[in-house]
Amino acid sequence: MGMGILVNSNTRVLVQGVTGREGSFHTKLMLDYGTKIVAGTSPGKRGNYVHGVPVYNTVREVIAEQGSPDASIVFVPAKFAADAVYEAIDGNIKLIVVITEGIPLHDELKFVNYARKRGVIIVGPNTPGVMTVEECKLGIMPAHVFRKGRVGLVSRSGTLTYEVARELSKRGYGVSTVIGLGGDPVTGLDFIEVAELFFKDKETDAIVLIGEIGGDAEERFAEYYSGASSKKPVVAYVAGKTAPPGKKMGHAGAIISMGMGDYESKKKSLEKARIPLAETPSQIPLLLDELLKKQ
């Protein structure tokens, strides 16, 4: 019990926006996975139940009647998402997973800074969430493609992560915890912070990092990795080699702009840090084989 990073089988979860289409659908799937959901919020819906989960109007009511949740997952629409995040932060919830896509950039900047100053971890926004396999799913990922194992998976994308998890499974690798950083330019966590958690986690032997064009999160990770004293093997994949500059590739954060964030720059930095870079998702487990054999 209590393996993996950020969430485990003891994590008590609140679902914000629980009565919405996405919120209620994924509440069901998370419950099926075994996630301990203690309550949901949806303004004006107090007294209802969603798949057996009691619904409250405010986070304050949840705390008063159910005790403090350890984590919250936010399904609230973009226009109201920032408000929901502040409510969770001010309710002293220490881990907030923001699934919502399309939140205005300056709203994100503000609540991410607000959270960091108060020691609150934000996963996302625009993330598939975080899941410690066979313990706790705090997200929308299809659970069946992840098999239990010792690889930590950290990614800026959703579907591609599922593809990679499937490739890993085919080759006999499983996952300890999978975490989506989120597809927006500003996110609560970055590769360095997640890697540090994985380096400390006894259940994780190696890390697979899935990056994409835009920003310099991969470059900064590579530089950090070169200098890190205690570390674990990392294999990387970066999507967007064929992406033209100045175009947003689906994610708000996936854009080569002001001369920053192209594939070549990430490739160069990762190679310099001696992190093997896969050219296709199917190469990832092969590179892991080589890397772990050398150890």
Binding site: S155, R156, S157, G158, T159, L160, T161, E163, G183, I210, E212, I213, Y237, A239, G240, K241, T242, A243, M249, G250, H251, A254, E279, T280, P281
Partner: peptide
């Protein structure tokens, strides 16, 4: 489907 997988599909075509 998904931004990352769509890019990975394009990149694999190039590969």
């Amino acid at each position: 489907n998904g931004a990352g997988l769509t890019m990975a599909t394009m990149d694999s075509i190039l590969f």
